[in-house]
C-alpha cells in the first residue's frame, strides 16, 4: 500500500514566520551578547534560507554582518546503508570554524539524527568554541538526546504527519509552514 501526503493545515504564514524569525534573531544576539565570533550555519536544504534570514536580521539589529555557512550532511547520514540509492551530495561551504560560536540552523527538528550528522561533520572541519541549535519548528519525536537552543514554534505532531516548510529561495512562492497528513492511496 502506498501513502500520499495531503495538506491538513497551514500553521504559519509569511508575516507570522517573519515575526518568529525576528524574535529568534533577537534571542541569538541576546544569548551571545552580540555578534562577536558568531557564525550561522544552515543545514541543506531548508536550513540554509533560515540561516540567511536570521543572519540578515541579526546583522541589521547589531549593525554588523554575520557570516553564513552551508552544511550538506549527506555523507554523514547514519542510514546510508539502509536507504538504498544514495542521495545527491551537494557542496559544503564553511568559513573557518575554529573558535567560532556556531549556530546550526534547520527548518524542522524531528528525530535529531540530522543534527547528530551535522555535529559529526562540523568536528571534521575544526573546533568551534560552542555549537548552538536554532530550528523554526520543533515537532517532537526525538530519537537522540538533542534539544534546540532557539525554537520558532513547538508543533506537536503524530508520526503519520509531515511538516513542510517553504522558503522563496528553495520552493518558490511565499514563506509558509504546513502540516501534511499521510493518507493511503487506494
Amino acid at each position: 500500500m502506498q501513502n500520499k501526503l495531503t495538506p491538513k493545515a497551514t500553521i504559519l504564514d509569511a508575516p507570522e514566520m517573519a515575526r518568529i524569525v525576528r524574535r529568534m534573531a533577537g534571542e541569538i544576539a541576546e544569548r551571545n551578547r552580540g555578534v562577536k565570533d558568531l557564525l550561522l550555519i544552515g543545514i541543506r536544504t531548508r536550513g540554509v534560507p533560515l540561516a540567511e534570514t536570521l543572519a540578515a536580521e541579526i546583522g541589521r539589529m547589531e549593525g554588523h554582518p554575520v557570516p553564513v555557512g552551508i552544511l550538506d550532511i549527506t555523507l554523514y547520514r547514519d542510514d546510508l546503508s539502509t536507504i538504498g540509492q544514495h542521495p545527491l551530495v551537494k557542496e559544503t561551504h564553511l568559513p573557518p570554524i575554529d573558535g567560532a560560536v556556531v549556530v546550526l540552523c534547520d527548518d524542522v527538528l524531528y528525530t535529531g539524527r540530522t543534527v547528530r550528522a551535522a555535529l559529526d561533520h562540523l568536528v571534521d572541519y575544526g573546533r568551534p568554541r560552542a555549537v548552538q541549535l536554532a530550528v523554526l519548528i520543533d515537532r517532537g519525536h526525538r530519537e537522540l538526546p538533542i534539544q534546540a537552543d532557539f525554537v520558532g514554534r513547538v508543533v506537536p505532531t503524530s508520526a503519520e504527519e509531515s511538516v513542510e516548510v517553504a522558503f522563496p529561495s528553495t520552493d518558490g512562492g511565499a514563506e509558509q509552514v504546513r502540516i501534511l497528513e499521510r493518507t493511503p492511496v487506494a
Partner: peptide, 20 residues
C-alpha cells in the same frame, strides 16, 4: 560529475575523510 564536484572539497579540509 556533479557528485565528484561536491566530494572534491573534502581534500581541502583538515580531516580529509568522511564516514560514508
Amino acid at each position: 560529475l556533479d557528485t565528484a564536484l561536491s566530494l572534491q572539497a573534502i581534500e581541502k579540509r583538515p580531516i580529509k575523510k568522511v564516514p560514508t
